[in-house]
């Protein structure tokens, strides 16, 4: 079972991330049973079949950095889980997507970082509103993750809200 970090603790995870191929396959891609995080294109293409599973809290959608949130936000707000993919850890678009989901659209569900998620960026991710971090599988052993969680993060939050004690 993959390990994730949720609310500052390591835990096992039942969600399976369905990695897509191209857009063409979105309509026909098989979505397995259980809790699944599907590519946005699959959600859009198979919405009638997937809606009940979403309502039951069993379906999440993952977004890429070029997702146009303005056009989609209403559709996504009811999902129990939204994941944002970091194709490389140096691709910082996911931080803005997460910030927008939380501050502009008021998304209150689980917001998960997936992809090239490295422990030296955990604190940035959490401060942008991610509630769950899913590090690259097999990148870290348990000891390393434990160490990451007790390490001092970046104390500095975004100014000036940090100074008001609202971090």
């Amino acid at each position: 079972m993959p390990q994730i970090i949720k609310n500052g603790r390591i835990q096992g995870d039942e969600w399976k991330v369905l990695r897509g191929v191209g857009n063409d396959a979105a309509a026909t891609m098989a979505v397995p049973a259980g809790r699944v995080i599907v590519p946005l294109a699959v959600w859009q293409a198979q919405r009638p079949q997937l809606a009940s599973s979403a309502e039951a809290g069993m379906l999440g959608v993952w977004l890429t950095g070029d997702t146009d949130l303005a056009a989609l936000a209403d559709d996504l707000m009811a999902l129990p889980l939204i994941a944002v993919d970091f194709p490389r850890f140096t691709d910082g678009r996911g931080y803005s997507i997460a910030t927008q989901l939380r501050t502009r659209y008021g998304y209150a569900g689980e917001l998960r970082a997936i992809g090239d998620v490295l422990c030296d960026q955990f604190s940035f991710m959490i401060r942008c509103g991610f509630s769950t971090l899913q590090p690259c599988e097999e990148r870290y052993n348990r000891v390393q993750i434990d160490a990451a969680l007790t390490r001092p993060g970046d104390f500095s939050g975004p100014f000036p809200r940090n100074r008001r004690g609202t971090r």
Binding site: G92, T99, Q121, F124, F159, P160
Partner: peptide
């Protein structure tokens, strides 16, 4: 404000 800005570090 810009020091360790979580959104704009990458």
């Amino acid at each position: 404000w810009s020091t360790s800005h979580p959104e704009f570090s990458f």
